[in-house]
Design a protein around this nucleic acid. Structure first.
Length: 304
DNA sequence: AACCTTCTCAACCGCCCCAGG
DNA sequence: GCCTGGGGCGGTTGAGAAGGT
């Protein structure tokens, strides 16, 4: 007994929308508002499925939709949010005013993945659970429903430590003006690749030189005034503490002005790494310190 | 100019969740 | 308690555009 399709498919148009259809849909929604998508096509005089109308409106016709190129800031924000949220495009879109989930998803799949790969980053892949995942037992009654809800809540309440970036702005100094590629590369764990490590160092060096700073990487990495080590650049969120709202935390990250004001702790964070893996971050940080203070510094006359 | 390949993105599809009857 | 419909989401597709030979 399968579910009936959302609308009778016979005789309905598919494919690209014509200008006339767009006009009909826009006019109808202007007069009657959104919603009731199933009945909308009939009332609006469209030979389209309700879902198709909704999609067209949401992704294209709705007022306030930004079209065209993504700015550097938007790109950066998407990358950051994706590292936090995975492929939850609607959530990500909710934090990019004027952008739709579909557009962001497309942009991610066509541009950003490539960009990150070129930078040597394997973006976090958050494949959806297989369709035939063992379903959570269907709640049979109100009690079961409550039980399931409790279970869900509990999974959030598990004393699982989550580290979210604490936004600490570096208002001046050499760590500003990184490109997305630089951020991506800097945030890669370099433990297995001397090339990446060396490239990471070059990026730091390049930025220091281009900023005309006389500060050596080792200085700002060590200086408590300029940089915060991973151990204190992440807030430990105790999920048992009901006062802490993860949404708020995402908010904090999401609305930080981007590329030109990068936060170093985010540079470390953005490695599409497991956020809960603090030791990995510690490790990366130690690698930086070791590399910069011991080896490269002495090898590089530019910075002597 | 013609053909082929690659890229882009709007649109579709199928599934899920949830509210309401 | 069950069923159904509405709405929303993420993955995928395919037509058209752009680029390459």
């Amino acid at each position: 007994m399968g579910r009936a399709p959302c609308c009778a498919k016979e005789g309905l148009r598919k494919g690209p929308w014509s200008a006339k259809e767009d006009l009909l849909l826009t006019n109808y929604i202007k007069e009657n508002g959104e919603g009731q998508w199933r009945n909308l096509p009939k009332k609006a005089g469209l030979l389209r499925c309700g879902k198709s109308c909704r999609l067209r409106w949401m992704n294209y016709l709705r007022p306030g939709i930004k079209r065209g190129n993504f700015s550097q800031d938007e790109e950066d924000l998407i990358i950051r949010l994706h590292s936090l949220l995975g492929n939850r495009w609607s959530l990500i879109a909710g934090r990019l005013p004027g952008r739709t989930d579909n557009e962001i998803k497309n942009y991610w799949n066509t541009h950003l993945i490539k960009k990150l790969k070129i930078a040597g980053i394997q973006p976090k892949v958050t494949k959806k659970e297989p369709k035939k995942k063992p379903k959570t037992e269907k709640p049979r009654n109100k009690q079961d429903k409550m039980k399931n809800k409790k279970k869900k809540d509990q999974s959030l309440d598990t004393p699982q430590v989550v580290f979210v970036p604490k936004p600490i702005r570096i208002s001046s100094g050499p760590l500003r003006n990184f490109s997305v590629e630089d951020v991506a590369l800097l945030s890669t764990s370099s433990s297995d690749s001397p090339e990446i490590l060396s490239h990471q160092y070059q990026i730091l060096q390049k930025h220091i030189i281009s900023e005309g700073s006389d500060t050596h990487p080792s200085t700002f990495l060590k200086s408590p005034n300029n940089i915060v080590s991973p151990s204190n650049s992440f807030e430990e969120v105790d999920n048992n503490n009901k006062d802490i709202n993860i949404e708020d935390k995402i908010e904090e990250v999401a609305f930080i002005p981007c590329a030109s004001n990068l936060l170093f702790d985010e540079v470390l964070l953005d490695g599409f790494c497991d956020l809960s893996n603090e030791s990995m971050l510690e490790k990366v940080y130690e690698e930086y310190l070791q590399l910069i203070s011991e080896k490269c510094y002495h090898d590089d006359p530019m910075l002597m």
